[in-house]
Design a protein around this nucleic acid. Structure first.
Lengths: 382, 382
DNA sequence: AACCGAACTGTAAACGTTTACAGTTCGCTC
DNA sequence: GAGCGAACTGTAAACGTTTACAGTTCGGTT
């Protein structure tokens, strides 16, 4: 027994005060049964001392920290923000804390996060890689803790994953544009050397083929994900390929850039030019006219990833799982004449299992006047 | 010496393999000096085994976890997102991880976060309280680890804090509107029973008084922070008080709602109605016309809070500090005829000490055509 | 060749828990 | 009132590190 020095109370302090052994203290505090008299004295001593168990010591003994790590390229990106929200909402009720890691889209940093699981500081990882290399697969396969990837992985990869369906998403948007009579639809894509970039391109060409339209390479521009990049791209398109009546953009920022450019030239939206974006971020709802956008289910992907990880941590030793989240088209004023100027739809409102809204004043009637179309989800286990 | 069973390698495993004691292993690994021969053997053994030190054991021994906690009301709010980014950017180079906690604006949850510092799981806390009660002050004063508050605290509070200057911010926006010849400026405020709510109201009335204008209560509406709430409020104002030529809104969402409402009625912006918002979020840049907005320096508040906390953790035992971050007005097309339709200014671009941009393609020429005015910052130590 | 101090190394304790095991108490039954 | 399980309690070890202390080695001096 140490002298009752300064420092916060420990089981030892309580044991001394209650006149029992530290084992009894631990047992009472964890509800493992003791004589009523013992329980009373320990609980009283603990309460008087304001005892709080040392989580670090507990983690060392128990081998679990009750911490999860979420690593993504950029904290600021609204897509990842909604993932964070859902992961948090899923993990918190089970007593897990969330550790945030921004990789700044540096591949080496991603690898480091996976490797650092070996330091036992976190019980599991949800990773959004910018691009998946062979080294990624090797390192993840050897990870000291369960890893779930949000993104596309090769079929044989031994890692759980959740992916978006950007092919279907693009198809939904393109079909919508073409169904409303547009015949010359441009395409502003993000970097093409990524899986989503290639998938969107595929969706675009597929939709054109479906409609019996020819694919004109001059109608496609590849650029950065950026408002000003979107504006520049739109200007370029309008200069080089006159007669464009609609444009699909790989994210909402690009789409808003396109809207700006169109306005600069005196084009009316949607009358002269229909614009559709992707991600269904808050920007889409806020802009004027409100932006038609493809929702790739980032919130749901976050929730599913969290559930996958938690089930692994529960010790369930099932096969590798890979789930695909359906895309959903949210039609607003930028492509349709009869859509309202703004709507009250929030992306988490689309998720029945979502976190309860902390601030009821912020959500009103859900999506009145907003049309949503879902692509069929394909769920496969390999 | 235990049998070399499964499980990840520990100092013991390495010691056995290198033929030295665990103390030597620890010393070599921490660079505390050893004979070249010992160093070589330990390092080789560690490398061969792929040893990674157990961070939990380390934390238990050292009494520090190298983890910081950031607790705020809502992960999704862009204001907090930019704080997260800066806190992360400041703490990561010093080897600190960031634990995220969303309080969902529940006061009891805020108190729990502070109390849970006693579990030794985090080295310090940055808290954004929704409202500060006496109990908050008591609990923070008794906290087991340093706490920094982002928000306004009573003068005598024994806690470091960083606050925004919403009075000056409101004044900047109002002076700008009045200086451009507007004479009937409405005010859409958020909830009035908070410190920022009262401060904005004060700034509004002060600006009117400065300009020798009478304060007309019919021109002020108090509502929730919400796009649709902003639209509803604007409609109400235009119905009840005709002749309004400008409006200042307590955040960008409200302002965009006002823009929508004005468009619905065929009003031109800025010709018929000038609109200014607050927070200078991405929404302000993205909207059309781009929105004049007051930047309350959320990124900088995050950075300063992180620095304050880190200096406490460095053992510096200075007096309680309270810093106020200056407000800055960013003028864009929604109030000025000659402003560009959009600009490339990003809020972190305004911060010279900010995190380097991970994606150079996203930032172009900084703020060309955008006028920024700073309120003088007052920095005080109590 | 013995000696000395510096430099290194090993043993063991400590951080605060949880828990196996052995020892104790207790309420019953006969 | 002795005997018997069941229920409780205490001792001690374990989780994986770091580090004070004492013991060892080493080179260089005299």
């Amino acid at each position: 027994m140490t002298t009752s020095a300064a420092g916060p109370p420990t089981v030892e302090t309580i044991a001394a005060r209650a006149g029992v052994s530290i084992a009894s203290v631990s047992r009472v505090l964890n509800g493992h049964g003791a004589r009523p008299n013992t329980v009373r004295r320990v609980e009283q001593a603990a309460a008087e001392l304001g005892y709080v168990p040392n989580g670090v010591a507990r983690s060392l003994k128990g081998g679990r920290t009750r911490q999860l790590t979420f690593a993504m390229p950029d904290v600021g990106n609204p897509v990842y923000v909604s993932m964070v929200r859902q992961i948090q909402a899923t993990a918190k009720p089970l007593g897990y804390r969330l550790l945030l890691h921004s990789t700044d889209a540096v591949a080496e940093d991603e690898l480091d996060v996976v490797r650092s699981l070996a330091d036992r500081t976190s019980d599991g990882l949800i990773l959004v890689p910018i691009r998946v290399t062979g080294e990624h697969l090797d390192v993840m396969a050897a990870a000291a803790r369960p890893v779930v990837v949000i993104g596309s992985l090769p079929d044989e990869a031994p890692v759980d994953s959740v992916r978006a369906d950007s092919v279907s998403g693009t198809l939904l948007a393109m079909r919508h544009l073409l169904a409303s009579g547009r015949r010359r639809t441009a395409f502003i894509n993000g970097p093409a050397d990524t899986v989503p970039g290639r998938n969107r391109s595929l969706g675009y060409r597929t939709a054109l083929a479906e409609a019996g339209l020819e694919h004109d390479p001059a109608l496609t521009v590849t650029t950065e994900f950026d408002i000003s990049a979107g504006a520049a791209a739109m200007h370029r398109l309008l200069d080089a390929a006159p007669g464009i009546d609609s444009v699909f953009c790989a994210n909402d920022q690009l789409a808003l850039g396109a809207v700006h450019a169109a306005h600069d030239r005196g084009l009316r939206i949607p009358e002269d030019l229909a614009v559709a974006g992707m991600d269904n971020s808050e920007l889409a709802r806020a802009s004027h006219p409100a932006l038609t956008s493809v929702d790739l289910g980032s919130a749901e992907r976050g929730r599913i990833a969290a559930e996958m990880l938690l089930s692994r941590l529960d010790g369930e030793d099932h096969d590798v799982r890979c789930e695909t989240v359906a895309a959903r088209l949210v039609v607003r004023g930028s492509t349709a004449y009869d859509q309202p100027d703004y709507d009250h739809d929030r992306d988490r409102a689309s998720d029945p299992r979502a976190h309860p809204d902390p601030d009821p004043g912020r959500r009103r009637g859900a999506g009145s006047g907003t049309t949503a179309t879902s692509a069929s989800a394909s769920v496969s286990a390999s």
